[in-house]
């Protein structure tokens, strides 16, 4: 599904990613953990195609296709979804109409016809129920005045609507109380299948009790310094990141 080879990236003069290698197969859940400033969010932004970051070396493949030169929207059309750590407020655009636009622009890019209105409404109803989202919420301006939890739930709602092949959840657990965390995790789990993959980026092990990973990677100083099964997350929780820092 996703194959990252020797990825180096920098923002302005600062090198942040220093040779990332990662293989994610369909049906798998990978967790990327690491202390603050290790490059976790940079990695997710680079995969999604944020232009601020300059890829200086290495490649990113999605289903064998090099996506390194693609615009963010092209990557989205190929099936990449990034759940933002800090979702952006867009005043004047409602959640519903943002989703309509996103879905229809994606279909347009694939040469498909727009989704009929009744089908769209049905889809919105179904997915909003999955994320336990109030209907009134959908007519509000996107993320404007949303609580931290509402923003994250809305991210996963969008993920459910767009049905990506590869979902990257960047610190989706931050700012969530335990109930919201359960709803969000439940949403993600229901969307998992043999045909898609999830990369969970998190600082804490907590989310991984709900979204159980097949593999855990530790990112430090722009490199993956340790990989293992889900037990690695517990080990990190127990020993703290100083353990990683002292080894590297």
């Amino acid at each position: 599904m996703l194959s990252i080879k020797n990825l180096h990236a920098r923002v302005e003069d600062k090198e942040i990613l220093r040779g990332i290698n990662l293989e994610v197969k369909a049906g798998e859940v990978h967790a990327i953990m690491g202390p603050n400033g290790s490059g976790k969010s940079t990695l997710s932004s680079v995969i999604a195609g944020k232009e601020e970051y300059e890829v200086t070396d290495g490649q990113i493949f999605l289903e064998g296709e090099d996506i390194g030169e693609m615009a963010p929207e092209e990557r989205a059309h190929k099936g990449i979804f990034l759940s933002f750590q800090y979702p952006v407020e867009i005043p004047g655009v409602s959640v519903t109409n943002f989703m309509k636009t996103a879905i229809n622009e994606t279909r347009k890019a694939k040469g498909e016809a727009e989704m009929p209105a009744n089908e769209m409404l049905k889809l919105i109803r179904e997915k909003s129920e999955l994320l336990e989202i109030d209907r009134k919420f959908l007519s509000r301006s996107l993320n404007e005045g949303f609580s931290g939890g509402e923003k994250k739930r809305n991210e996963i709602f969008q993920m459910a609507m767009l049905e990506p092949k590869l979902a990257i959840l960047d610190e989706t657990d931050s700012g969530l109380d335990i109930d919201a965390l359960r709803i969000v995790a439940n949403g993600v789990n229901k969307l998992r299948s043999e045909n898609n993959a999830v990369v969970v980026i998190t600082h804490y092990q907590r989310l991984l009790d709900y979204i159980v990973p097949d593999f855990v990677h530790v990112l430090y100083n722009g490199k993956i310094v340790k990989s293992g099964g889900k037990e690695l997350a517990y080990e990190l929780e127990e020993k703290g990141y100083d353990w990683i820092k002292s080894e590297n």
Partner: peptide
């Protein structure tokens, strides 16, 4: 970037 990452062209 947020909108583009959801598939809406620039």
């Amino acid at each position: 970037f947020y909108m583009q990452s959801r598939g809406i062209p620039q």
